[in-house]
Design a protein around this nucleic acid. Structure first.
Lengths: 320, 320
DNA sequence: TTTGATCTGGCAACCGTTTGCAAGGGAGGA
DNA sequence: TCCTCCCTTGCAAACGGTTGCCAGATCAAA
């Protein structure tokens, strides 16, 4: 049905290799021949078969993008950006979802191995050791995880957490609840690291938690009970869940308790009160991850992107 | 590097064809041999090369999923469901985003043609005619669009719009603003069709609009000015935008104006006031679309999924 | 006119799997 | 004992491109 390189060759009386070269090494073919071939190809609607090309060259022009949860609003902008960037480089993107399960993550990577030119691993839940082992079989770029020698796109969570804490301290909060994320999350560790060193603050840790609204909802009561006047949540979804839970207990945000999230997702922007949050550069990260994957000769370049505290309505002065 | 069928064959002293058959037609090989082969394959970490398989069989075990905008919260659950369903059938999913641009949509489809076994086309912006033409080159399942002879997953938008309108009428609303979506949206047409036939209601149409918060925000002033006491919006994002705009004008929802959306996305559930909306079965649609694509011998089965009005806090009695 | 360098394009092997065809072996019936 | 028939396996030709190698042509310089 579909035109192959052979049809094009026949149509303009040249050998298949000439057609092949017109596309993959144009400088090796005479301009006159080249344009004849291009015309014939265009005429027949020829599109090179990627599977066939992959077979000989070993390059598929596909990449895998693995995220913890597609439905978590943090990821879609990242996926979108990565997809768009990849398409500009003639790459197709397989998107897959681990449902926060490290075993699914591993299996997914194994499935992708040798079927793609590289994998973008976003917010992995696997251990560093495991990721390093898997990286022997397929090039990786990790997002939101620092692994030595491996290309990575990091977001400056530490700085973000620091400014959030300073913001809260500046509003007079001392006892602050830190609602962390799931086990295996680098982001969560970074936050805890910064918080643990924060001077003059009285931190109460809650975790691990599901990185969802449900996760936030589930700890809301404990948070309220612990006497904290402010909450720093693992992400916006958790923050929103906490607010939801608090308001069900008739606890006002920010009047009685202030809440800060992470990510800057749409629901947070639309929420009442509008969520104060540390914006994560998801779009830039998606783009950058693709670039890194395509550039990297396997070199472990690490890019750290800045975060920014966005003060909205969910934080206010501590009640005295 | 990676083990091929040849390595496995050598490792257990059989011909490659036997190894091949162990995987693709197990009943044709002796159980004893089969287990020897499987052991060797497992030992070497053999995974069949999909590109090579695609070359001979003509089946790639890949499918394309094209949506208008990945970042629109309506799609991620659909994408997630489709991806998960596909993975269960050993399929990989290319996800792509048209940015609401029909030309990008067309180009994307062309790119996917012959590289995938089929395309899931969600909420297309292309004309029926164009889609039919493109369908000659690659199997489609369309979601949210009825095209004769083509497998489709539809959502019962008409019924949803009808119950929304009845709900509003029951609350005493007569003059209702209908804020529609983008050109080329079947959903938008369905809504308008139902609305146009609604007895005893005074409808004011606004459109076309971007299917985003910004789109809603942009018409909020006009909506307020037209004297309507209720709004039926193309989707939740638009509804949220309208609410946003109204509240900026100090117009209370639902006290002064009631708002109903479509989709039932997360931000709407978290919003204050919680959004009354017509829930669209995105998850079921994603799953169903995959099944339809895989089952269909090209037959044009059409599935219509039910919608459900979810009454929350953004609708109330009309002020008299 | 000869020489040699440079272009251009053909030839054919190869990438990893699948699959139609055929051959070898064993079992069962005559 | 011989003949079928079935089961199992091997053989080899595809699938659609890519690419190293080689040969003929072209052209400039000698």
């Amino acid at each position: 049905m579909a035109a192959t390189i052979k049809d094009v060759a026949r149509a303009c009386g040249v050998h298949v290799s000439t057609v092949s070269r017109t596309f993959s090494a144009p400088h090796l073919v005479n301009p006159a021949t080249r344009s004849r071939v291009l015309a014939a190809a265009d005429d027949l609607g020829y599109r090179p078969n990627r599977a066939a090309r992959a077979l000989t060259t070993g390059r598929t022009f596909n990449m895998g993008l693995i995220v913890a949860d597609i439905a978590n609003p943090f990821f879609p902008p990242l996926i979108k950006a990565a997809q768009s960037q990849a398409r500009g480089r003639d790459y197709h993107v397989f998107v897959a979802d681990t449902d926060e399960d490290p075993r699914v993550e591993e299996e997914l990577i194994r499935t992708f191995t040798k079927q793609v030119d590289g994998v973008l691993l976003c917010s992995p839940r696997l251990s560093n050791k495991m990721i390093e082992r898997l990286a022997e079989d397929v090039p990786f770029v990790v997002v939101n995880r620092r692994i030595k020698g491996m290309p990575a796109v990091l977001m400056n969570v530490a700085q973000g957490a620091k400014s959030a804490l300073e913001h809260l301290a500046g509003l007079g909060h001392h006892r602050i609840a830190l609602v962390s994320g799931p086990i295996g999350s680098w982001t969560s560790n970074e936050m805890q690291g910064v918080a643990a060193e924060a001077p003059g603050l009285d931190l109460v840790f809650f975790g691990p938690n599901q990185p969802t609204e449900a996760g936030g909802l589930a700890v809301a009561a404990d948070v309220a009970a612990c006497g904290a006047t402010a909450v720093l949540a693992y992400n916006d979804l958790v923050a929103l869940g906490v607010i939801e839970g608090l308001s069900a207990m008739e606890i006002g945000v920010p009047d009685q308790i202030s809440v800060v999230g992470f990510d800057d997702i749409l629901p947070g922007r639309l929420n009442r009160p509008k969520l104060t949050t540390v914006a994560m550069p998801a779009v830039a990260a998606g783009r950058m991850a693709v670039d890194l994957l395509l550039q990297s000769g396997g070199e472990g370049a690490t890019v750290t992107l800045d975060t920014a505290l966005i003060i909205r309505e969910s934080t206010g002065r501590a009640q005295t």
